[in-house]
Design a protein around this nucleic acid. Structure first.
Lengths: 194, 194
DNA sequence: GCGCTAAAGCGGTGATCTCTGCTTTAGTGC
DNA sequence: GCACTAAAGCAGAGATCACCGCTTTAGCGC
């Protein structure tokens, strides 16, 4: 569970192993699905001894959760200062992240861990999503936008939830245009009725 | 894979075994979580030999998908002929079904099966949800309701998706009142702003 | 360079799972 | 009732996984 890159010895080897393992995990989950992946399999693909994985991560769920956490760090789009644009950007990025090979698999992994840790994984995942949208709404409110921005809860219901739902069920037509329609439906001047 | 109750010999014993296995699966998933359940464990709880499970279902995912399919058959609420009431009833029932112990676990099981069958499981699950709401909209349309009912896609986005999302992330306050607010937000005369 | 030590590698062990050939039980049609 | 056979039970083999003591490697501070 402690898998901070910055714990004790972040130098060469640990970091290399970490990177190799993360890469192998992403690859395997992408091509087999999270259910068909085991720690030994990841270890072999990464060219690393499996005992290392058991020591550093303990369980597959913990490893996948770790991967998910550090996935797409520092790639989130910046705020531009316009509510509609920012909502669209964050939503499009969220959609893209979910749609990446194994995207939902990692989402599921974070949701899935053993019953004890399940709640933590869930909270963390939801927190991550929320924190991507909260600044958007906060700055809009501080800016004093004409119609005050919707609540975070509403954004989750009207934008994030449909995205997750549609990606999980791979409903066709879930693209950028659809995201824009969702945003438009939420903050008014809905152009196209879907 | 083929697990129709009505294949070759639906008589006494097969049906009993089937029921025992389904019950054991529900119990175990409910108390341990789907990840901690194995076919031998289900077999033992059901008082059935594990080879039977391997022969009839093959994999845990297939078993759970089978259970999910036959879960809550014939318990869905009837149509009363009023769009709002019917939407609310179906949505409340869906929420209740998802919230049952292991509810999301079974949802996930249907979503999860090995990559080959994943698409089938997904399609079937989505189809099941859709078919609960489609009649509601169809009858409303045939009835010639004043504002025509929303599209099925819209119902999925605005009602079903938030429910799934909130149950998966166990967001508090996801109850009957919330469902009514969702419906109200969709078909107009939204009473309470959330 | 040189020790120090965190972390990775190696090998092995017990437990569990998955699957299969054969036997036995018990519905179903006559 | 009685034969027929689908389906369940039994037992065991092979594979894999989870885990752990010990050894070896290689960053890091001096």
């Amino acid at each position: 569970m402690n898998a901070d890159a910055s714990t004790k010895r972040p130098g060469g080897r640990s970091a290399r192993v970490r990177a190799a393992v993360h890469g192998a995990a992403v690859a395997l989950v992408g091509e087999r699905g999270a259910d068909q992946v085991t720690l030994p399999a990841v270890a072999e693909r990464a060219g690393v001894n499996s005992s290392t994985l058991y020591r550093r991560w303990g369980t597959l769920a913990a490893l996948l959760a770790d991967v998910a956490r550090h996935r797409g760090d520092a790639s989130a789009p910046p705020l531009v200062g316009d509510l509609r644009a920012d909502l669209e950007n964050q939503a499009v990025w969220t959609l893209a992240e979910l749609s990446r090979p194994g995207g939902i698999a990692f989402f599921r992994a974070e949701v899935a861990p053993d019953v004890d840790e399940r709640h933590d994984g869930l909270r963390e995942c939801l927190h991550g999503v929320s924190e991507r949208f909260r600044p958007v709404l906060d700055t809009a409110r501080e800016r004093g936008d004409a119609p005050p921005p919707p609540s975070l809860e509403r954004v989750l219901d009207r934008i994030v939830a449909p995205l997750y739902f549609r990606v999980v069920f791979s409903i066709p037509g879930t693209d950028e245009a659809y995201v824009r329609a969702l945003v438009a439906g939420l903050i008014g001047e809905a152009p196209l009725e879907r």
